[in-house]
Write a protein that binds this DNA or RNA. Sequence first.
DNA 1: GGTGAAATTATCGTATACAAAAATAAGATG
DNA 2: CATCTTATTTTTGTATACGATAATTTCACC
Lengths: 217, 217
Amino acid sequence: MSSRAATRVFQGIEEEIATGLLKDGEKLDEATLAERFDVSRTPVREALLQLVGSGLATQIPKRGCFVRSPSFREVIEMFEVMSELEGLCARLAARRISEAQLKRLKQANAGCEDAIAQGDSDLYYANNVQFHECIYEACGNTFLADETRRLRRRLQSFRRLQLRVRGRMPQSLDEHHLIIDAIESGLAEKADELSRTHVMIQGERFNDLLMHMEQAH
Amino acid sequence: MSSRAATRVFQGIEEEIATGLLKDGEKLDEATLAERFDVSRTPVREALLQLVGSGLATQIPKRGCFVRSPSFREVIEMFEVMSELEGLCARLAARRISEAQLKRLKQANAGCEDAIAQGDSDLYYANNVQFHECIYEACGNTFLADETRRLRRRLQSFRRLQLRVRGRMPQSLDEHHLIIDAIESGLAEKADELSRTHVMIQGERFNDLLMHMEQAH
DNA sequence: GGTGAAATTATCGTATACAAAAATAAGATG
DNA sequence: CATCTTATTTTTGTATACGATAATTTCACC
């Protein structure tokens, strides 16, 4: 955790948006937030600026900031882009990965297997992050890796829910194995294709999940 | 022009970085900038935050902000991502473009032809922007379009130089024609492939340009 | 003369104060 | 009673003031 109040507020608001405490369209009142986080308006304003920068809020001049949860359509659009970026990472990784990186990639996946054996979805989540992180590093394009992480972060809250969807974890693991094989064999196009569908399936699962949640209502 | 001082300062610094007045690694001193733009430190700090957010500066806690021009390697990396995004835009556009959008796409390209006939590189640049803008709109993915524009904007200063490279404009136009044909025929994969190479050639040309500039020294 | 510690200085990060603009409420007029 | 105008209030955007931390300088000691 950073010692800066501004980042504390930023992460705080970010989390409240993710957990649904702050809903879409809700006004982010500077004075109220300042009081709630027990700081002055200055760090709150800095946090709001960063929120706008990362797309979680919109700012209307002289009218204030408002929560901007992406619409259903927008989430699908983000998954469409995410699948492309992940695909590119995998394609490049297939050409550029080192032995050490490949080893770590396999270790991360082994961690995923253990998590499934233990039925621990949080542990799976952590190892899954590692798995993808290995590919990002192996792609040899720092800018691409950063951009992909950024988008992954934005999709995080939607992604985490998906793992709870029945039967997703074992299927995800199967896909990981195929991706590793393709990368290890240097089959760039195959690794790309597999990764793209790996992500797009998550997008579709998100769709299923929404349907399910709407039915529950 | 915005009425906000913060955005004025942001755009001002942005331009000074683009024109080379502020060089890589140079310190962005809050007090100095405040005096130069005739505002207080508050809007300067907001501008710096935005600069950091858009990757033009880095911030070291308790030590201040510094200009962060992308390295040669990073520019190449950005082109690598850009080519992928442009490719995705074209692939989706091939599936989703409307008649009206296709018409505007052809008009933009006709504008490019005129510009070449007149030998006007600025006019070519303007119509070229229109050409790509049409594809962004036609891809039917607002998020993708926004992200691609964002990256295009960051590469702008490097891109503009390239058109001056000998023989680039006519070649670029040929590529446009092929892309239009692929999109019109609904050949998604072909449109993707053509667009990707279209951008990557620019990356390579940027490479050539750098070599040339280094020789001139 | 060189090295290390303490004092000084500078700058960042935050709080508060003020000004300007917009939203809201109140009142007058038809 | 509705509507337009005007006054009040709320809130944003900017300036200034202050405290804390890191960089720098000074000075003692080896």
